[in-house]
């Protein structure tokens, strides 16, 4: 990876972290409503994955989607404005935290029903297969989504129809508050892909360079072979499942232990050791992010509410 790209990935990860930290503050202040699920701790997964795609490759994910939106190229302004339910959000304030998307950035949402977007991902790939192009659909979901029927119908269809889908399971150990070992018959989730004779692997998700390399390889495989691939990525969310999580299901020592593998810290160390960047350069990136996020908050707060007549707009396309 070129130096500029590495610095860009560092920028993206810090941006996700700071957008969400500020988002959490705004949530506590009552300015953001509904459910909000933070990606903090998992930034390397989405950042590495999406860096490995071609612009024509599609991305679709679950409700933990702020980071994915930023990685796909949506601005901090649009993300923050959507969190605040403003007309300037990418979904015009009608979607909120869980429903971010951008057709222009080839980001197909932000879906809030666990597992529900997996058959839709198979459909994006069906559309591309029908159009006879070699676009790859990258579909991200949590470990919890692998226990629901949608998952199995989607994987079966993808393999049977040879659809170009890269399935990415972000195994962050818990589906809400229920651990993988309490919810899943198999402890290694990639084994479920074996049931569909789907090529698969399991990687660590705290080192963005490793995620990037694995994703590159997997996307290449999918594109060249017109065959789905299943990637299980081990990661951890440092915050609760959502903002209203009492966290009775895990001990703080466990969280602290994982925090030692902070993906931003790991990457910072990597960049310094490889002399890809100076501490000063990385500090400058962090300062730039700080300013960008401050501006995004200002932008979102100053943005107008959706117009009342927008309540009835866009129920139908025609």
């Amino acid at each position: 990876m070129k130096k500029e790209q590495q610095l860009d990935l560092y920028y993206q990860m810090v941006l996700i972290r700071r957008v969400e930290e500020r988002g959490a503050e705004l949530y506590q202040a009552g300015k953001i409503g509904g459910f909000m699920h933070l990606y903090i701790g998992q930034e390397a997964v989405s950042t590495g994955l999406i860096a490995a795609r071609e612009p024509r490759d599609r991305v679709i994910t679950a409700y933990r989607d702020h980071g994915v939106a930023l990685n796909c190229g949506l601005s901090a302004n649009e993300v923050m404005a959507e969190l605040l339910g403003k007309a300037t959000g990418m979904s015009k304030g009608k979607g909120g935290s869980m429903h971010m998307a951008s057709v222009e950035k080839n980001f197909w949402g932000g879906h809030a029903i666990v597992g529900g977007h997996l058959p839709i991902a198979a459909g994006l790939a069906t559309g591309d297969q029908y159009a006879k192009n070699d676009n790859v659909t990258i579909c991200m979901f949590g470990d919890g989504a692998t226990n629901i029927g949608y998952f199995h119908e989607a994987l079966n269809l993808a393999k049977t129809w040879k659809l170009r889908v890269l399935w990415v399971c972000e195994n962050n150990v818990y589906g809400m508050g229920t651990s993988v070992e309490r919810a899943s018959a198999v402890k290694e989730i990639r084994q479920k892909a074996e049931g569909y004779e789907m090529k698969n692997s399991r990687i660590g998700g705290m080192d963005v360079t490793k995620v990037y390399e694995a994703a590159k390889e997997a996307i290449d495989y999918v594109r060249k072979n017109s065959d789905p691939y299943f990637l299980e990525v081990d990661t951890y969310r440092f915050r609760g499942h959502s903002m209203g999580d009492p966290e009775r299901y895990r001990k703080q020592e466990e969280v602290k232990k994982w925090e030692e593998s902070d993906p931003i810290g790991i990457f910072r160390k990597h960049l310094l050791e490889k002399k890809a960047a100076t501490a000063k350069a990385l500090d400058e990136i962090e300062a730039r992010v700080e300013e960008e996020v401050n501006k995004a908050v200002e932008f979102a707060e100053a943005s107008p509410e959706p117009a009342m007549e927008d309540l009835f707009n866009e129920i139908y396309a025609e």
Partner: peptide
């Protein structure tokens, strides 16, 4: 779920 889900996805990308 695969039938209607896949049809929705294909429709979203222009089919």
């Amino acid at each position: 779920n695969a039938i209607i889900g896949a049809a929705i996805g294909a429709a979203m990308v222009g089919q």
